[in-house]
Amino acid sequence: MLDLPPGDIIAVLAVGLGASLLVGLPGAAALRIARRRTITVHVTVLLTITVLAVLAGVVGAAQAMFLSAHDRDVVLLVVAGSGTVSLGVGWWLGGRLARDAVWADQLRQRERQAEANRRELVAWVSHDLRTPLAGLRAMAEALEDGVVADPATTAEYHRRIRVEADRMTQLVDDLFELSRINAGALRLSLRPVPLAEVVSDALASAAPLARARGIRLVAAEFGWPAVVASEPELARIVGNLLRNAVRFTPHDGMVQITAGRDGNRAWLAVADTCGGIPDADLPRVFEVAFRGEPARSPTGADAPARPSSGPVGGGLGLAIVRGLVEAHGGRVEVTNAGAGCRFLVHLHAAG
């Protein structure tokens, strides 16, 4: 129990409350002004108001002669010291809270973006599966019902069924590769790989589609460095870039692939004559399921007629390229250059 007369208790409480109100009311206004500021500012203002309220109470009690000069000075020193420490700790905690809030907001944004990408990917894949499946079913029913009887048409239907099956296999492979990249399950066996050999194989693979579209494939004759990479994944990077360039290049266009070395870094460039990419779309080129404007999609005016075109894509090829390049510790970028765009891959050079 307090060893004070009731009158003194009431007087002390009145002085303390009065002093707190004198500081608290302007402090409430300051907090209202600071509500749109950072968390650090908000916490610092709150602690400052608290410390000032205590100081005002001590000064008020001293003025009312409830404290001696000695006791007043001792209490003021204690409050000043603890207040300084409190403000320092509050500023530090406010900074931590602000950083945590920013991190949490970024995490929520990434989660929302990932969910949006997932929904978009499911929509694209559903569309790309539905189209070949419908064609497969129609051709299978025609063969089963005997609607198609002559050997030439029957052989053509069998060829188309095989092509559509290959397209769907490619899509499934892309999905599996992308899931490995996103899950962090990609295991690379890094070793020196001659880039010339990988590019030669990729050119041979892309040549039939390029011929069908009347597109010239041009490769540098020399200057091919060796890179530190996993050969299967490197082959996929080069193959995806070449197929992407061929798909979006109009008839009589050209796709050129070059490479070189800059210190301990090697680079590979694939340039086409697709007409360029809108500046607003450049940052999104490597996003999952992004295809850009309809004129540049595989179903645009310059695309080969389905089902005899090349492998189907769900907008995954360039997303896989970025994931594989970054898994190698490199980077990939795209710019508009000349009559088209240029994809540039940077990797660690061997030797």
Rank of each mutant, 00 (worst) to 15 (best):
P5R: 11
G7E: 15
V15C: 01
S20R: 00
G24T: 01
L47F: 10
T50E: 15
A53V: 03
V59R: 02
Q63K: 06
M65A: 13
M65S: 14
R72L: 07
L77R: 07
A80E: 14
A80I: 12
A80C: 11
G88S: 05
G88I: 13
G90Y: 10
W91T: 15
L93P: 09
G95Y: 10
R96A: 06
A98D: 15
A101D: 14
W103M: 10
D105A: 10
R108L: 12
Q113Y: 00
E120Y: 00
L121D: 00
A123P: 00
P132W: 04
A134C: 02
L136R: 00
A140P: 11
V147G: 12
A149P: 14
D150Q: 11
A152E: 15
A152H: 12
T153N: 12
E164C: 06
Q170T: 13
D173V: 05
D174S: 12
D174Q: 13
L178G: 04
R180Q: 10
L186T: 07
S200C: 04
L209N: 13
V227W: 08
A235Q: 13
I237M: 02
I237S: 00
L241R: 03
L241P: 04
R243G: 06
D252K: 03
G253M: 11
V255G: 05
V255Y: 09
Q256H: 07
T258Q: 13
G260H: 08
G260R: 06
D262H: 08
D262L: 06
R265H: 12
A266G: 05
W267K: 01
T273L: 04
G276A: 08
G276P: 15
D279M: 09
A280L: 13
V285L: 09
V285K: 01
F290M: 01
R291F: 08
P294C: 09
A295P: 14
G300Q: 08
D302N: 10
A303L: 07
P304G: 09
G310Q: 03
V321N: 01
R322A: 02
G323D: 05
V325T: 08
E326V: 10
A327W: 09
G330S: 01
F343S: 04
L344I: 11
H348G: 07
A350Y: 10
